[in-house]
Simulated assay, not measured.
Amino acid sequence: MTSKWFNPPPPAFTSFITSDPASEFPAEPNRYVLYVHYGCPFAHRTNIVYHLKRLQSLVGFSAVSIHRDGDNGWGYDGSSGSDSADPIYGFKNLRQLYEKADPEYKGGYSVPFIFDRKKETIVSNDSSDIVRMLSTAFDSNLDPDLREENKAGGGLLPAPLKAEIEELNDWVNEDVSWGAYKCGFSQTQEHYDEAMTALYKALDKLEERLAETKFLFGDHITEADVRLFPTIARFDMAYVTVMNCDWKQIRYDYPNLHRWLRHLYWEVDNDAKDAFKGTTHFDIFMEGYAKSAMRLKLVPWGPKKPILPLSD
Score class of each variant (00 low, 15 high):
1 M>Y: 13
4 K>C: 14
6 F>W: 11
7 N>Q: 12
8 P>C: 14
8 P>N: 09
17 I>N: 02
18 T>G: 07
20 D>H: 03
22 A>Y: 09
23 S>I: 00
24 E>W: 00
27 A>G: 12
27 A>F: 13
42 F>H: 11
47 N>M: 13
47 N>L: 14
49 V>R: 03
50 Y>P: 03
53 K>G: 04
55 L>F: 02
57 S>Q: 15
58 L>G: 04
58 L>W: 04
61 F>K: 02
64 V>Q: 08
64 V>L: 02
66 I>Y: 05
67 H>Q: 11
69 D>I: 07
75 G>K: 06
76 Y>P: 00
79 S>A: 11
82 S>L: 00
85 A>M: 07
85 A>Y: 01
85 A>R: 05
86 D>N: 02
89 Y>S: 12
91 F>G: 04
92 K>D: 06
95 R>Y: 05
95 R>D: 11
96 Q>C: 10
97 L>W: 11
97 L>P: 10
97 L>S: 10
105 Y>A: 08
106 K>N: 09
106 K>W: 03
107 G>Y: 05
108 G>Q: 15
112 P>R: 06
114 I>P: 08
116 D>N: 10
120 E>K: 05
125 N>W: 03
126 D>Q: 05
127 S>T: 10
127 S>A: 03
132 R>Q: 14
134 L>D: 06
135 S>N: 14
136 T>R: 06
137 A>D: 03
147 R>L: 05
150 N>S: 05
151 K>G: 05
155 G>R: 00
158 P>T: 12
159 A>Y: 00
160 P>L: 13
161 L>F: 02
163 A>W: 06
165 I>M: 06
167 E>Y: 00
171 W>T: 04
172 V>K: 09
175 D>I: 08
178 W>E: 11
180 A>I: 08
181 Y>P: 02
182 K>P: 08
182 K>V: 04
184 G>N: 06
187 Q>C: 13
188 T>N: 02
189 Q>D: 15
191 H>I: 06
193 D>V: 09
196 M>P: 03
201 K>E: 15
202 A>Q: 05
204 D>L: 12
207 E>F: 08
211 A>K: 13
214 K>Q: 14
215 F>V: 01
219 D>H: 14
225 D>C: 00
226 V>Y: 01
228 L>C: 10
230 P>R: 00
234 R>V: 00
235 F>Q: 08
238 A>S: 15
242 V>L: 04
243 M>H: 11
254 Y>N: 08
258 H>K: 14
265 Y>V: 13
270 N>C: 05
270 N>A: 15
274 D>Q: 10
275 A>N: 00
277 K>L: 10
279 T>Q: 01
280 T>P: 03
281 H>R: 08
286 M>F: 01
286 M>W: 01
288 G>K: 03
290 A>R: 13
291 K>L: 07
291 K>M: 13
292 S>R: 13
295 R>E: 05
296 L>W: 15
298 L>E: 15
301 W>T: 13
301 W>R: 14
302 G>N: 07
302 G>K: 14
302 G>E: 11
305 K>W: 09
307 I>P: 01
308 L>D: 15
308 L>N: 13
310 L>W: 09
